[in-house]
């Protein structure tokens, strides 16, 4: 979680990542931000994020991202 929070704060430190639950739905992070985030997450956690994972529910909060990372690591 610490590594994830570090990445998220590097992407945009104006977002309260610990509390925010609708980062995508509320458009706090746009599609270009999501793309940058994807490559950071892939590098940091050694996972592969495919197009099928590019859904708002996977990126709306730090918790949702954490769950996605854990799920992809198990694959």
């Amino acid at each position: 979680m610490d590594t994830l929070m570090k990445i998220l704060n590097e992407i945009d430190d104006s977002i309260n990542w610990e509390k925010e639950k609708a980062v995508i739905d509320d458009r706090l992070l746009d599609s270009f931000g999501v793309i940058t985030l994807v490559s950071e997450l892939e590098d940091a956690f050694g996972i592969e994020i495919e197009a099928s994972e590019m859904a708002a529910e996977n990126f709306n909060s730090a918790e949702a991202m954490c769950q996605m990372i854990l799920r992809l690591k198990e694959k």
Partner: peptide, 18 residues
């Protein structure tokens, strides 16, 4: 959904990213 994101996470773009 069907063009932008698939292209964004394609292997070519990932290579470029790295």
């Amino acid at each position: 959904t069907y063009v932008f994101y698939p292209v964004s996470v394609s292997s070519a773009v990932k290579k470029w990213n790295k």
